[in-house]
Nucleic acid binder design. Sequence first.
DNA 1: AAATTGACCTAGAACATCTAGGTTATTGGA
DNA 2: TCCAATAACCTAGATGTTCTAGGTCAATTT
Lengths: 112, 112
Amino acid sequence: MTKSLDIMQGTLELLILKTLSTAESMHGFEILRWIQTSTQGVLTVEEGSLYPALHRMQNRGLLTAEFGVSDKGRRAKYYQLTTKGRKRMVRAETDWADYVQAVGQLVEAAKT
Amino acid sequence: MTKSLDIMQGTLELLILKTLSTAESMHGFEILRWIQTSTQGVLTVEEGSLYPALHRMQNRGLLTAEFGVSDKGRRAKYYQLTTKGRKRMVRAETDWADYVQAVGQLVEAAKT
DNA sequence: AAATTGACCTAGAACATCTAGGTTATTGGA
DNA sequence: TCCAATAACCTAGATGTTCTAGGTCAATTT
């Protein structure tokens, strides 16, 4: 394991939204693993960050949740994107891209 | 003015370090303006964020400071990168690049 | 003389993430 | 059978950064 970076404030929501867009529904633990594996372990979300984030997003109407049974036969809470969540995802993505571009511009400008 | 994005937690330090690397020394207001103009107004740092950040960085030995006189004949506090600050800058830059890449990977993976 | 600008400052609010705990139930091994 | 490990969830409080919203002082402009 090379190193794992802390999640930057404001990006977790994007990561969750994007992750949830890959399936009809996923439960928390799955989301956690998917974030980790899809980034080859560079991004690791703590459970103590993820669950509150999911609750916040549900409260804001970005997600719906219902209990079900996981692959391994255990009780699990399945989350789904709402229409609002999908719109938010698009916005979060462009905001992130804009931010990255702006930082890139500054870094480039500093080379001169 | 299209829109200005909030500074994401953890990135201000990188922005300041990079900005200071463009000159021997700069004072706070200059740093503020440089961040804004080099990103075409996309990133705007509030004074209430900048000054505490500069103080933190000085305390950590990343910067030194001394009072002088600005272009416009006003009292101003000039900051300089220390050797430690320069090292920190390199690290902050690669961390940022790694982070961006990881998020990019996740977003790409979500397209499948 | 008054208003604006330049430059600096701080206290407290807001907010998200992490730390560090805890719960329950199932599975696997000794 | 019993115990440990795993899966899955949860929350309270600590931490740390940024923003809001003020304020000061001196020089320039009106």
